[in-house]
Every structure is written in structure tokens, then in C-alpha cells.
């Protein structure tokens, strides 16, 4: 079921409720079981994310380099909670627990691209650019 759910999220940016009965039928399981799987895993969203997704690592190695304070300042500045999306729909900030970049902490991932050795200024710039840069391609 996981490859199907990943494929749906790749296509739509989230796993639409409407897809769950179809998955249940195709795999010959109950809708409750499909719901159980979708809701178990942190990756799967039930609504679309912003155009850009910034994942900030909150695990110990990034905490040791003060990533938590940097993240809190960013969230305060742009008025978001963890997992929230800006009003313009351009940026979602999600928590992640380890990107495997622990010797280059604090670390983040923007739209799947790894970013290491962040400082407060670089993090604020990153979020600012994601919200205000013209899209290169559509």
C-alpha cells in the first residue's frame, strides 16, 4: 500500500480522501485499514501543502547547534505553527526528525533539496526567497 500512497502524494501533493475507497477495493482490504495506514505515517497529508515545503530538523544533533531556537524565530516571524502553511499558500513548514545531515547541523530540506550549516539569517532568507521569488518554471 505504501508505494500507492507515495504515488498519490507525488501526483496530488496529498492523499485525497476520495482515493481511499479505491485503494481498499484494489487491495481487497477494508476502508478502515486504508485509513489506518494513511493516518499512521507522518509523511502522508490529508490536504495540499504550500507550493514550497520546508522541513526543519528538530532532532538532537540539530538541537545541539541551536536549530530549535532558529526554527522558533522563523515560525514567529511568519506567524506559523509547525505544519502550517502561509496565507499566500506559498510555504509550508514541517518538522522532521533527522535528515542524516547531523555533522552539518542545523539542517533542513526545501522541496527535497538538502541544506546544512544553517544560521538564523540563512534560514530566514530561505523562507523569504521561497515566498517571494518568481517561479523559474511553471
Amino acid at each position: 500500500m505504501l508505494p500507492i500512497l507515495h504515488a498519490l502524494q507525488d501526483e496530488f501533493g496529498y492523499v485525497p480522501q476520495a482515493a481511499l475507497p479505491m485503494i481498499a477495493e484494489a487491495l481487497n482490504v477494508s476502508r478502515a485499514e486504508v485509513h489506518g495506514v494513511v493516518s499512521f505515517y507522518h509523511d502522508f497529508r490529508d490536504k495540499p501543502a504550500g507550493r514550497h515545503v520546508l522541513k526543519l530538523c528538530r532532532a538532537e544533533a540539530c538541537q545541539s547547534m541551536h536549530g530549535e531556537a532558529m526554527a522558533e524565530k522563523l515560525l514567529r516571524d511568519i506567524g506559523l505553527e509547525w505544519g502550517g502553511t502561509t496565507g499566500d499558500g506559498r510555504l509550508t513548514v514541517e518538522a522532521t526528525y533527522c535528515l542524516g545531515l547531523c555533522a552539518s547541523a542545523p539542517a533542513a530540506m526545501l522541496d527535497g533539496q538538502p541544506i546544512g550549516r544553517l544560521n538564523q539569517e540563512a534560514l530566514l532568507d530561505l523562507a523569504h526567497d521561497a515566498r517571494h521569488q518568481q517561479e523559474g518554471r511553471r
Binding site: 532532532a59 538532537e60 544533533a61 540539530c62 526528525y97 533527522c98 542524516g100 545531515l101 547531523c102 555533522a103
Partner: peptide, 10 residues
């Protein structure tokens, strides 16, 4: 490899 501080597998 979910442990913070590890990246050998990656």
C-alpha cells in the same frame, strides 16, 4: 536510519 547523529547508511 532514523537515529539522530547517524548517517552511515545514507
Amino acid at each position: 536510519e532514523g537515529d539522530s547523529g547517524t548517517f552511515a547508511d545514507r
